[in-house]
Write a protein that binds this DNA or RNA. Structure first.
Lengths: 148, 148
DNA sequence: GCTTGCAGCTCCAGCGACTGGAGGTTTTAT
DNA sequence: ATAAAACCTCCAGTCGCTGGAGCTGCAAGC
């Protein structure tokens, strides 16, 4: 199977597949006489696993670890469980964070009565920390705004 | 006011301030004889506005636009309102997205009974698209997992 | 006046997970 | 045989910082 076909089947880009090979989570493919990659269904399965993990927001390092742990079928799945639970915790935290943000944004947008910029409550809310109701000011995570 | 003092007051790093100057959202400061930046309270206000916006997840480009629009006090605040509402919509979408993720992660974690890796339901769920209940498979945004 | 040490300066590389492009080669279809 | 599409490698760019190297400025204590 060519790299293009694999990309189509797995719903990702050709460059992404080469990137996964480069960072070592997808094993190098056999090459044709003209140096083109030839993939097996096994590669396809692994790539689908990787893509699915990425959709859940696992990092490449977490995926690498899971693939390593998954390689030994007799090993306890404790560690896999831990990684997944860690990710779940992150997701929950981020939801809370965003819900706070949503409330605050709604508050400042509601304040704006649609006049001129000089009296705009959105701008003044953003300018003035005194008006800020935000609970964890300045300690955001790097994916959603400022990370300190 | 030195750059270090400004950084302390605004709760950000010295490098961040220099970065904002470099990308043109914070005007260059007057320099001392020894070429060190000297800031005024006006700079401080602007920096606080920027930091506050960043905590809400506005991009540098959105902040640039808001600063530009805010510069003319007589202008209608329609555009500011639009930018803020766009951001609110993004936040709402991301919350929905993450809630789906949370449900799915909880489902696959619950499936794992803590045996050996070879029978681990977390791994098989991640490997098998057939088991995937995820609604918007493969169309995630770049901040939370895969973006296509 | 001299040293010490922190704070500042510029320039550049790196983060994560890709993405896109240049410039060349191979495969495939007509 | 030829043209188009797909492939190859290598490198730069994305975003918003962050950290480091290697230098200079400045205030305080002796």
């Amino acid at each position: 199977m060519s790299i293009g076909r694999l990309a189509t089947l797995c719903g990702c880009k050709v460059q992404t597949i080469r990137y996964y090979e480069e960072v070592g989570i997808l094993p190098p493919a056999r090459r044709s006489g003209g140096n083109q990659r030839l993939y097996t269904p096994t590669h396809g399965e692994r790539l689908l696993f990787i893509r699915h993990c990425r959709e859940f927001g696992f990092t490449i390092e977490q995926i690498r670890e899971m693939l390593l742990l998954g390689g030994d079928g007799e090993r306890s799945c404790e560690e896999i469980d831990r990684i997944a639970r860690e990710r779940l915790e992150e997701v929950k935290q981020k939801i809370l964070r965003l819900q706070g943000l949503q409330a605050e944004l709604e508050r400042i947008i509601t304040g704006c009565q649609g006049g001129r910029v000089i009296t705009c409550r959105i701008l003044s809310s953003l300018a003035d920390h005194g008006q800020c109701l935000h609970p964890r000011h300045g300690v955001m995570d790097p994916e959603e705004g400022v990370g300190n």
